[in-house]
Design a protein around this nucleic acid. Sequence first.
DNA 1: CAGAGGAAAATTTTT
DNA 2: TTTTCCTCTG
Length: 663
Amino acid sequence: MLNPQQHAAVEYCDGPLLVLAGAGSGKTRVITEKISHLISRRHLAPEKIAAITFTNKAAKEMRERVSKLISDDASKALTVCTFHALGLKFLQIEHDRAQLRRGFSVLDADDSGNMIKELSPKGIKPDVLNGIRNLVGRAKNAGLTPDEAMAAARSPRELEAAQIYDMYQTRLAAFNAVDFDDLIRLPLRILEADDEARAIWQERLRYLLVDEYQDTNDAQYRLLRTLTGTKGRFTCVGDDDQSIYAWRGANPENIDQLGKDFPQLRVIKLEQNYRCAKRILRAANHLIANNPHVHEKKLWSDHAEGPPIRVLECKDNEHEAERVASIAASLHEKYKDKVRWSDFTILYRGNFQARALEKALRLARVPYHLSGALSFLDRAEVKDILCYLRLLTNPTDDAAFLRVVNVPKREIGATTLEKLGTMAQTRNASLLEASRSDAVLKTIAPRSASALASFSRLIDELRSSSIHQSAADLVETVLDRTGYAAQIASTIADPTLRERKLGNLRELADWFRAMGKDGGRTGDLTAQLALLSHADRDDPGNALRMMTLHSAKGLEFRFVFIVGCEDGTLPHEGAIDEGRLDEERRLMYVGITRAKELLTLSFSARSRKYGEVLSNDPSRFLQELPQDDLHWDGKDPDADAEVTRETAATHMARIKAMLAGGV
DNA sequence: CAGAGGAAAATTTTT
DNA sequence: TTTTCCTCTG
């Protein structure tokens, strides 16, 4: 049953709509119900509807939920994907207008980061390099061309970044490749400039629903605006309190921009929380009240009060991990029939924090699933094979060429490649083309030249056989014909490791099989896979989930642990230094509001960084919580059982004194 | 050109 | 402490 506000949000389809939806207020429900409503009551064809999310995980979940409301055929025709995936789809159809050739490559963040590094002065300091990457990304997200970025540069550093941006785009064009930002920027440029394309796409997508709207950046917002035209056939759902991506260019002010660009905008607030126990919600509201607010909203819940929020005070990370693991295990034991492992989650600020937890969970025999950390798509062997596929479908992809030319070892080293690179550049040819040319090969040492020649022959042979093969079969062929499989067999002594690598490659083939069910070119599938590079393994099963606070957004769990509640970790020290505490606070808010029943916060007095021991203060956010709802558990492990409540204020003072004195 | 061994850096969050 | 990168040797 929908509440009146949700109902109104679903029914209102005549103009632009903004839904300000607090945490746990049923916003995904509104979107899925609305899709169903548009199809069955408004008779809109499902292929003309697109629901846009920010993560693949959210897209997957939304598709699952909506498929229960509509027919299979309708579900298939519907577009449910991320902004980036929509951009990719656009470019694959409109590659001519984007001046890309079919089979263009999508570089992941690693590839593009490395390319910018190569274009920067060598010996550059890592933080300066990161600054450049940031500035380049910002220019792209603002929808600026390299020329515009150079004109807009206000400092020597910005000018340098703009020049690197220019070289970077030139190189991408030469490689027939795009990066993540281009997946938004290029479609936007085409739609804004090309009336015909705009008309086609506005007709093609008649209604847009955007989830997590507060995370849109400027380019994404313009894309939305351009796609929906002046009529504004869209529903945006967002929550300014859950804006946690400003660091990568998200602009939460897009929420206000909507009202300026669409004066007819209707705004509906969802304020009833269906997820959290009263106490948990009170803590969240209390915390977030410390942030400035443009849109006041008062979230309420009619759930039970719930138990106090536990705060675990620990000696060090290991101790913290052990306690969290043992509390989880005893809860699971205590409520055996009523609780599943998948009801638990442990959240943290940075992926590195998972390490200590993993160890403790293994020891406690708790089944867990790590989401987000080095997925199999990030593994070297999988990336190698993907680069082979990229090179096969896009012979000008020099980045892929460089990655695989000497894998497995073919005696093609740095000197040879440098020479090849210069030759290719003067002839305006790709590296693969250059290594096919006799004139080029003549200038290279005979041994290396013949190695290069046989490599290019190998690629050409593989390409001709690739035409008749599915992507999954092609993976097998590549493994076999390139000698990659043989290399794994001969060079890796450890049988477990060898099996893991081969298993990863088999899984890659499986992915292609699953993705290619409805057809699709190998090149297109490879590009799609680049977008999945993180965290989207299928069903983790009945296991405790561990993830960063960022990737927890949109999810809910009965039992939530947030570890590392220390100043310097959460809030992160960089954020403290730069005075960006609001976003850190929202991150904590997101974490707290994931919990339905039980919330446990923990911090440790000491932690090891690079082997060095540091002492921490408890997170300042702990003091911003309603102290009456907290239950402090001291360092003594026995205290984990049942502890007398101490007033939080005295306890906090004692901890501070102890930290100041000790260590 | 490849592998070994030692020095230096690494930890914020993601499409 | 662990991982990555660089240099040196065969």
